[in-house]
Amino acid sequence: MFTSATDYVSGILAGDRRTLARTITLIESVLPAHQELARKIVDQLLPHTGKSVRIGITGVPGAGKSTYIESFGTMLTEKGHRVAVLAIDPSSTRSGGSILGDKTRMEKLAVNDRAFIRPSPSSGTLGGVGRKTRETMLACEAAGYDVVIIETVGVGQSETTVASMVDFFLVLMIAGAGDELQGIKKGVLEVADAIVINKADGDNINRAKMARREYEAALHMLMPASANWSPPVLTCSSLFSEGIETIWETILDHKQRFIKSGEFDVKRREQALEWMHFLLEDGLRTWFYTNPEVAQLLPGLKKDIAQLKISPTAAADRLLALLKR
């Protein structure tokens, strides 16, 4: 395999699947050398990014995310789009290994030439879901994918991170099983651009309609993030590909309105700034903790705090003073 960033860049721009896959591996790697190379590649790719519709999809386990993406993604490829799916898989075990089974539920999309699906283990990587996924998204855009879908599980913190890097954030729900709002955080609903009740088929249709009314009521209590958009609640059946089209139209409508009102560019600019701050904090943290003087001083100070010899404030001041020099 090649070693220079330029080789990777030209491969990606030529749409080579293998090169894109290898680049994602570099982005996800825990080795500093790989990360350095990945940064160079992504920098060079930047002029070719930004042209996709970025969609985040979350939902509780069992909501049918993968089946939904199978149906939704297949429809998009039939419309001539090229679709990249980045699936963040939480199914890690105590060993640190993981089972990545998303594609078994995306049988048609997985073999579709207009689609690229990459499941990533969420465990055992540094820097969290955010850094990897955003850079991977950019690489996919540069490779010519004009719809990028990021799938996360709706438990944990990754979904707000994902919401802050996409244009449209979709929360997938299912009807039934008692309290409808159980298991999903209020914070997730606050960042949702639409809620979709999946599995509205067979003898489940009525329950899905009922759930839809409940979510509509719940969303009503929340302040919409934009004056131009109140998040709708929709129903669909991934199994029978019903209601999928409407969701895509909703996403396009959202995009049109945001472009017209100027919010689209504002949001992307804000996301870029947010992103810089995120990286800044991440970098500062890494830089701080890898500073040799900090590393030397820190263990002693920890002990002193435990033995009440020094206050936490004073200890932090001493450590920060090191950096001022």
Binding site: S91, G96, G97, S98, L100, K103, R118, P119
Partner: peptide, 28 residues
């Protein structure tokens, strides 16, 4: 294998060799 510390991708059933290869490449 996951319990032994591997990251394990599972393919759908009934794959053709070309489909399995595509998945191997994408998942690197």
């Amino acid at each position: 294998y996951a319990d032994l510390g591997f990251d394990v991708d599972i393919s759908p059933m009934f794959q053709t060799p070309a489909e399995a290869a595509k998945m191997a490449i994408e998942n690197d």
